[in-house]
Design a protein around this nucleic acid. Structure first.
Lengths: 138, 138
DNA sequence: CGGAATCCCCAGAGATACTG
DNA sequence: CAGTATCTCTGGGGATTCCG
Protein backbone atom coordinates (compact mmCIF):
# COMPACT_ATOMS: atom_id res chain seq x y z
CA UNK A 1 0.00 0.00 0.00
CA UNK A 2 0.87 3.61 -0.04
CA UNK A 3 2.67 3.90 3.24
CA UNK A 4 5.32 6.10 1.77
CA UNK A 5 2.82 8.04 -0.24
CA UNK A 6 1.01 8.95 2.91
CA UNK A 7 4.16 10.17 4.53
CA UNK A 8 5.08 12.26 1.57
CA UNK A 9 1.63 13.66 1.14
CA UNK A 10 1.57 14.93 4.65
CA UNK A 11 4.80 16.80 4.10
CA UNK A 12 3.16 20.00 2.96
CA UNK A 13 6.36 21.71 2.01
CA UNK A 14 7.58 19.43 -0.73
CA UNK A 15 5.77 18.58 -3.97
CA UNK A 16 4.11 15.18 -4.00
CA UNK A 17 6.79 12.66 -4.67
CA UNK A 18 5.21 9.29 -5.00
CA UNK A 19 7.80 6.67 -4.21
CA UNK A 20 7.79 2.95 -4.80
CA UNK A 21 4.08 2.77 -4.47
CA UNK A 22 3.34 -0.78 -5.53
CA UNK A 23 5.88 -2.73 -3.52
CA UNK A 24 5.02 -1.49 -0.05
CA UNK A 25 3.81 -3.72 2.74
CA UNK A 26 0.14 -3.08 3.19
CA UNK A 27 0.10 -4.15 6.80
CA UNK A 28 2.99 -1.93 7.81
CA UNK A 29 1.41 1.47 7.08
CA UNK A 30 1.14 3.18 10.49
CA UNK A 31 -1.80 5.31 9.48
CA UNK A 32 -3.84 2.41 8.15
CA UNK A 33 -2.87 0.41 11.17
CA UNK A 34 -4.23 3.00 13.57
CA UNK A 35 -7.32 3.91 11.59
CA UNK A 36 -8.37 0.33 11.08
CA UNK A 37 -8.19 -0.27 14.81
CA UNK A 38 -9.87 2.82 16.21
CA UNK A 39 -12.18 2.80 13.21
CA UNK A 40 -13.99 -0.09 14.83
CA UNK A 41 -17.48 0.51 16.06
CA UNK A 42 -16.67 0.63 19.78
CA UNK A 43 -12.97 1.44 20.18
CA UNK A 44 -13.21 5.21 20.48
CA UNK A 45 -16.12 4.95 22.87
CA UNK A 46 -14.18 2.67 25.21
CA UNK A 47 -11.06 4.79 24.94
CA UNK A 48 -13.09 7.79 25.99
CA UNK A 49 -14.45 5.95 28.99
CA UNK A 50 -11.09 4.63 30.14
CA UNK A 51 -9.43 7.98 29.53
CA UNK A 52 -11.39 9.23 32.46
CA UNK A 53 -10.73 6.50 35.00
CA UNK A 54 -10.36 2.72 35.26
CA UNK A 55 -13.51 0.70 34.87
CA UNK A 56 -14.56 -2.86 35.46
CA UNK A 57 -16.02 -5.04 32.74
CA UNK A 58 -19.55 -4.82 34.03
CA UNK A 59 -19.34 -1.08 34.50
CA UNK A 60 -18.36 -0.59 30.87
CA UNK A 61 -21.15 -2.89 29.86
CA UNK A 62 -23.72 -0.81 31.72
CA UNK A 63 -22.29 2.43 30.38
CA UNK A 64 -22.66 1.24 26.79
CA UNK A 65 -25.81 -0.79 26.96
CA UNK A 66 -26.05 -1.44 23.24
CA UNK A 67 -22.73 -3.27 23.01
CA UNK A 68 -22.83 -7.02 23.05
CA UNK A 69 -20.78 -8.97 25.56
CA UNK A 70 -18.82 -10.45 22.72
CA UNK A 71 -17.85 -7.14 21.14
CA UNK A 72 -16.95 -5.62 24.51
CA UNK A 73 -14.58 -8.47 25.25
CA UNK A 74 -13.09 -8.41 21.78
CA UNK A 75 -12.64 -4.66 21.57
CA UNK A 76 -11.03 -4.53 25.00
CA UNK A 77 -8.65 -7.31 24.04
CA UNK A 78 -7.69 -5.54 20.82
CA UNK A 79 -7.04 -2.30 22.70
CA UNK A 80 -4.96 -4.21 25.20
CA UNK A 81 -3.05 -5.92 22.45
CA UNK A 82 -2.07 -2.59 20.93
CA UNK A 83 -0.88 -1.40 24.32
CA UNK A 84 -3.53 1.25 24.88
CA UNK A 85 -5.08 -0.32 27.96
CA UNK A 86 -4.05 -2.71 30.72
CA UNK A 87 -6.11 -5.51 32.20
CA UNK A 88 -5.89 -6.49 35.86
CA UNK A 89 -7.67 -9.48 37.37
CA UNK A 90 -8.62 -9.41 41.02
CA UNK A 91 -9.05 -12.95 42.34
CA UNK A 92 -12.06 -12.08 44.44
CA UNK A 93 -15.19 -14.14 44.55
CA UNK A 94 -16.75 -13.64 42.17
CA UNK A 95 -13.73 -12.47 40.17
CA UNK A 96 -13.52 -8.89 38.98
CA UNK A 97 -11.45 -7.44 36.16
CA UNK A 98 -10.37 -3.86 35.87
CA UNK A 99 -9.29 -2.07 32.72
CA UNK A 100 -7.15 1.06 32.82
CA UNK A 101 -5.41 3.20 30.27
CA UNK A 102 -1.67 2.91 29.76
CA UNK A 103 0.73 5.78 29.19
CA UNK A 104 0.71 4.92 25.51
CA UNK A 105 -3.07 5.04 25.48
CA UNK A 106 -3.08 8.37 27.22
CA UNK A 107 -0.63 9.80 24.71
CA UNK A 108 -2.92 8.60 21.93
CA UNK A 109 -5.92 10.10 23.61
CA UNK A 110 -4.46 13.60 23.40
CA UNK A 111 -4.66 14.05 19.62
CA UNK A 112 -7.68 11.76 19.47
CA UNK A 113 -9.66 13.96 21.81
CA UNK A 114 -8.82 16.98 19.66
CA UNK A 115 -10.34 15.22 16.69
CA UNK A 116 -13.42 14.28 18.67
CA UNK A 117 -13.83 17.84 19.84
CA UNK A 118 -13.71 18.91 16.21
CA UNK A 119 -16.41 16.38 15.42
CA UNK A 120 -18.72 17.81 18.03
CA UNK A 121 -17.99 21.42 17.19
CA UNK A 122 -18.58 20.92 13.47
CA UNK A 123 -21.32 18.35 13.48
CA UNK A 124 -23.92 20.88 12.46
CA UNK A 125 -21.83 22.03 9.52
CA UNK A 126 -21.43 18.46 8.32
CA UNK A 127 -25.12 17.73 8.62
CA UNK A 128 -25.93 20.91 6.75
CA UNK A 129 -23.52 19.93 3.99
CA UNK A 130 -25.27 16.60 3.70
CA UNK A 131 -28.67 18.18 3.34
CA UNK A 132 -27.38 20.48 0.62
CA UNK A 133 -25.75 17.59 -1.21
CA UNK A 134 -28.78 15.35 -1.03
CA UNK A 135 -31.07 18.10 -2.24
CA UNK A 136 -28.81 18.94 -5.16
CA UNK A 137 -28.99 15.28 -6.25
CA UNK A 138 -32.73 15.62 -7.03
CA UNK B 1 -26.65 5.42 21.26
CA UNK B 2 -24.43 6.93 23.85
CA UNK B 3 -24.04 10.37 22.40
CA UNK B 4 -24.42 12.03 25.76
CA UNK B 5 -22.30 9.46 27.46
CA UNK B 6 -19.47 10.28 25.13
CA UNK B 7 -19.77 13.96 25.86
CA UNK B 8 -19.79 13.42 29.57
CA UNK B 9 -16.97 10.97 29.51
CA UNK B 10 -14.72 13.44 27.78
CA UNK B 11 -15.39 15.96 30.53
CA UNK B 12 -12.50 14.88 32.70
CA UNK B 13 -13.44 17.11 35.61
CA UNK B 14 -16.81 15.68 36.53
CA UNK B 15 -17.60 12.14 37.61
CA UNK B 16 -19.18 9.98 34.93
CA UNK B 17 -22.79 10.90 34.76
CA UNK B 18 -24.53 8.60 32.38
CA UNK B 19 -27.63 10.32 31.09
CA UNK B 20 -30.59 8.95 29.22
CA UNK B 21 -28.46 6.39 27.55
CA UNK B 22 -31.04 4.18 25.88
CA UNK B 23 -33.21 6.75 24.17
CA UNK B 24 -30.57 8.60 22.20
CA UNK B 25 -30.54 8.76 18.42
CA UNK B 26 -27.80 6.47 17.26
CA UNK B 27 -27.28 8.32 14.01
CA UNK B 28 -26.95 11.70 15.68
CA UNK B 29 -23.81 11.04 17.71
CA UNK B 30 -21.18 13.38 16.24
CA UNK B 31 -18.27 11.19 17.24
CA UNK B 32 -19.74 8.05 15.72
CA UNK B 33 -20.71 10.03 12.69
CA UNK B 34 -17.16 11.20 12.07
CA UNK B 35 -15.42 7.96 12.97
CA UNK B 36 -17.66 5.84 10.79
CA UNK B 37 -16.89 8.08 7.83
CA UNK B 38 -13.15 8.56 8.11
CA UNK B 39 -12.90 5.02 9.43
CA UNK B 40 -13.45 3.84 5.89
CA UNK B 41 -10.60 2.19 4.14
CA UNK B 42 -9.67 5.07 1.83
CA UNK B 43 -11.04 8.29 3.35
CA UNK B 44 -7.98 9.37 5.30
CA UNK B 45 -5.69 8.59 2.42
CA UNK B 46 -7.69 10.77 0.05
CA UNK B 47 -7.97 13.55 2.60
CA UNK B 48 -4.21 13.53 2.94
CA UNK B 49 -3.77 13.79 -0.80
CA UNK B 50 -6.28 16.61 -1.24
CA UNK B 51 -4.92 18.45 1.80
CA UNK B 52 -1.86 19.10 -0.27
CA UNK B 53 -3.40 20.33 -3.50
CA UNK B 54 -6.34 19.67 -5.82
CA UNK B 55 -6.21 16.50 -7.87
CA UNK B 56 -8.06 15.06 -10.81
CA UNK B 57 -9.83 11.72 -10.64
CA UNK B 58 -7.20 9.91 -12.68
CA UNK B 59 -4.37 11.43 -10.70
CA UNK B 60 -5.80 10.11 -7.46
CA UNK B 61 -6.29 6.77 -9.10
CA UNK B 62 -2.65 6.58 -10.09
CA UNK B 63 -1.47 7.78 -6.68
CA UNK B 64 -3.39 5.03 -4.92
CA UNK B 65 -3.08 2.18 -7.37
CA UNK B 66 -4.72 -0.42 -5.16
CA UNK B 67 -8.04 1.38 -4.91
CA UNK B 68 -10.80 0.23 -7.20
CA UNK B 69 -12.55 2.70 -9.46
CA UNK B 70 -15.75 2.02 -7.61
CA UNK B 71 -14.36 2.79 -4.16
CA UNK B 72 -12.57 5.90 -5.37
CA UNK B 73 -15.79 7.29 -6.79
CA UNK B 74 -17.79 6.34 -3.73
CA UNK B 75 -15.30 7.62 -1.16
CA UNK B 76 -14.94 10.92 -3.00
CA UNK B 77 -18.70 11.31 -3.16
CA UNK B 78 -19.03 10.61 0.56
CA UNK B 79 -16.34 13.15 1.38
CA UNK B 80 -18.08 15.66 -0.85
CA UNK B 81 -21.40 14.94 0.77
CA UNK B 82 -20.00 15.70 4.20
CA UNK B 83 -18.60 18.97 2.88
CA UNK B 84 -14.92 18.09 3.17
CA UNK B 85 -14.13 18.36 -0.54
CA UNK B 86 -15.54 20.08 -3.61
CA UNK B 87 -15.97 18.62 -7.08
CA UNK B 88 -15.56 20.69 -10.24
CA UNK B 89 -16.27 19.39 -13.73
CA UNK B 90 -14.40 20.92 -16.67
CA UNK B 91 -16.34 20.33 -19.89
CA UNK B 92 -13.25 19.59 -21.93
CA UNK B 93 -12.99 16.73 -24.33
CA UNK B 94 -12.56 14.26 -22.84
CA UNK B 95 -14.09 15.66 -19.65
CA UNK B 96 -11.95 16.16 -16.58
CA UNK B 97 -13.02 16.43 -12.95
CA UNK B 98 -11.06 18.09 -10.23
CA UNK B 99 -11.43 17.57 -6.48
CA UNK B 100 -10.26 20.11 -3.95
CA UNK B 101 -10.52 20.50 -0.21
CA UNK B 102 -13.05 22.89 1.30
CA UNK B 103 -12.47 25.15 4.27
CA UNK B 104 -14.37 22.67 6.40
CA UNK B 105 -12.15 19.88 5.16
CA UNK B 106 -9.06 21.86 5.92
CA UNK B 107 -10.26 22.58 9.44
CA UNK B 108 -10.81 18.85 9.90
CA UNK B 109 -7.40 18.07 8.56
CA UNK B 110 -5.72 20.02 11.34
CA UNK B 111 -6.59 17.71 14.24
CA UNK B 112 -6.62 14.71 11.92
CA UNK B 113 -3.02 15.30 10.88
CA UNK B 114 -2.01 15.46 14.53
CA UNK B 115 -3.50 12.04 15.07
CA UNK B 116 -1.75 10.66 12.00
CA UNK B 117 1.54 12.09 13.18
CA UNK B 118 0.99 10.28 16.46
CA UNK B 119 0.37 7.07 14.56
CA UNK B 120 3.66 7.33 12.75
CA UNK B 121 5.64 8.40 15.80
CA UNK B 122 4.29 5.56 17.94
CA UNK B 123 3.94 2.80 15.43
CA UNK B 124 6.94 0.94 16.77
CA UNK B 125 5.57 1.06 20.30
CA UNK B 126 2.26 -0.37 19.13
CA UNK B 127 3.91 -3.15 17.20
CA UNK B 128 6.09 -3.99 20.17
CA UNK B 129 3.03 -4.12 22.40
CA UNK B 130 1.42 -6.55 19.99
CA UNK B 131 4.41 -8.86 20.03
CA UNK B 132 4.43 -8.86 23.82
CA UNK B 133 0.72 -9.59 23.96
CA UNK B 134 0.84 -12.38 21.42
CA UNK B 135 3.76 -14.04 23.16
CA UNK B 136 2.09 -13.85 26.57
CA UNK B 137 -0.93 -15.70 25.11
CA UNK B 138 1.12 -18.94 24.75
C1' DC C 1 -11.93 10.32 -18.91
C1' DG C 2 -14.95 9.57 -15.15
C1' DG C 3 -17.98 7.45 -13.87
C1' DA C 4 -22.68 3.95 -13.08
C1' DA C 5 -24.56 -0.75 -12.67
C1' DT C 6 -24.16 -5.37 -11.40
C1' DC C 7 -22.55 -9.45 -9.06
C1' DC C 8 -20.08 -11.48 -5.38
C1' DC C 9 -17.40 -12.36 -1.14
C1' DC C 10 -15.94 -12.21 3.49
C1' DA C 11 -14.78 -9.93 7.91
C1' DG C 12 -17.14 -7.27 11.49
C1' DA C 13 -20.71 -7.37 14.28
C1' DG C 14 -25.19 -9.25 16.66
C1' DA C 15 -27.81 -13.05 19.27
C1' DT C 16 -27.87 -16.83 22.08
C1' DA C 17 -26.23 -20.34 25.15
C1' DC C 18 -22.78 -22.22 28.17
C1' DT C 19 -18.67 -22.01 31.93
C1' DG C 20 -14.79 -21.25 35.74
C1' DC D 1 -18.77 -11.71 37.22
C1' DA D 2 -16.43 -12.03 33.24
C1' DG D 3 -15.89 -14.17 30.04
C1' DT D 4 -15.87 -18.36 25.79
C1' DA D 5 -18.22 -20.87 21.91
C1' DT D 6 -21.35 -21.07 17.80
C1' DC D 7 -24.26 -19.57 14.51
C1' DT D 8 -25.85 -16.10 11.65
C1' DC D 9 -26.21 -12.09 8.80
C1' DT D 10 -25.44 -7.53 7.08
C1' DG D 11 -22.86 -4.27 4.36
C1' DG D 12 -18.21 -2.61 3.11
C1' DG D 13 -15.43 -3.43 -0.36
C1' DG D 14 -13.45 -5.94 -4.81
C1' DA D 15 -13.92 -7.37 -9.88
C1' DT D 16 -16.03 -6.78 -13.98
C1' DT D 17 -18.76 -4.68 -17.50
C1' DC D 18 -21.13 -0.86 -19.73
C1' DC D 19 -22.05 4.42 -20.72
C1' DG D 20 -21.82 9.91 -22.19
Amino acid sequence: MSARTVVNLRNTEAPPRVVDISKLDFTNCPVRDLISQIGGKWSVLLLEALAQRPYRFGELRRMVPDISQRMLTQTLRDLQRDGYIDREVFPTKPPSVEYRMTDLGRSLYGPLAQLLNWAEANHDAVRAARVRFDQSQD
